[in-house]
Each structure stands twice: as structure tokens, then as C-alpha cells.
Amino acid sequence: GNIFIKNLHPDIDNKALYDTFSVFGDILSSKIATDENGKSKGFGFVHFEEEGAAKEAIDALNGMLLNGQEIYVAP
């Protein structure tokens, strides 16, 4: 299952995104959108192997604080 994450703190990188979401299941890919200079655009995507893991991550993390910013997590 794919999920979309927005309002990410600029310091959150691909590894931090992966580490945050990997507790919910096996991740096939995770990516933070960046500009041409490699600076985070504040949103990203995680693709879980299983749909159930994606739903669990959405339920658990939507509205949670990550590096002091409330993140939005949705399908």
C-alpha cells in the first residue's frame, strides 16, 4: 500500500522517513520529494509491501509530531 506524508520537517531525510515507518511493516520504497538543490519540499511517499501495514501507519501516525511538526499521513 502507498501512503503520502506531508508537512515534514526539513531535517527529515529518506533514512528518517524509512526508520519512522518501517516499524509498521516491510517497505518497498520510501522517498522525500526534493528540489533541484536536494532540499526537502516537505512531503514524501512510502510504499509498503502489505496494504494492512499502510493502514496501520496512517492510523498511528496521522497528526503525530515528527521533529516538532504535526505530520499528515494519508493513502
Rank of each mutant, 00 (worst) to 15 (best):
I3K: 00
F4N: 02
F4W: 00
F4A: 01
I5Y: 01
I5K: 02
I5D: 00
I5F: 04
K6P: 00
K6N: 02
N7T: 06
L8Q: 01
L8P: 00
L8T: 04
H9V: 14
H9F: 08
P10Y: 10
P10A: 14
D11A: 12
D11G: 08
D13S: 07
D13L: 05
N14P: 07
N14H: 10
K15Q: 06
K15R: 14
A16T: 14
L17M: 12
L17A: 07
Y18K: 10
Y18H: 13
D19H: 12
D19A: 12
D19S: 15
D19G: 10
F21T: 07
F21S: 06
S22A: 09
F24T: 01
F24N: 02
G25W: 01
D26I: 08
D26G: 11
D26K: 10
I27H: 00
L28A: 05
I32C: 15
T34R: 08
T34L: 13
T34P: 10
T34A: 13
D35L: 13
D35F: 12
E36A: 14
N37I: 11
G38I: 13
G38K: 08
G38V: 08
K39T: 11
K39H: 07
K39Y: 08
S40H: 13
G42R: 15
F45T: 01
F45C: 02
F45L: 01
V46T: 06
H47P: 00
F48Y: 12
F48C: 03
F48S: 00
E50G: 10
E50P: 09
E51I: 09
G52V: 14
A53Q: 08
A53P: 11
A53G: 12
A53N: 09
A54C: 06
A54I: 04
K55A: 09
K55M: 11
K55T: 13
E56Y: 10
A57C: 09
D59Y: 10
D59S: 10
D59V: 10
A60R: 05
L61I: 15
L61G: 04
L61Y: 05
L61S: 07
L61R: 05
N62Q: 13
N62H: 13
G63H: 09
G63S: 11
M64F: 09
M64E: 07
M64V: 11
L65T: 15
L65M: 12
L66M: 13
L66V: 14
L66P: 05
N67D: 13
G68D: 13
G68P: 03
Q69S: 15
Q69R: 15
E70Q: 12
I71H: 02
Y72E: 02
Y72V: 07
V73G: 04
V73R: 02
A74L: 04
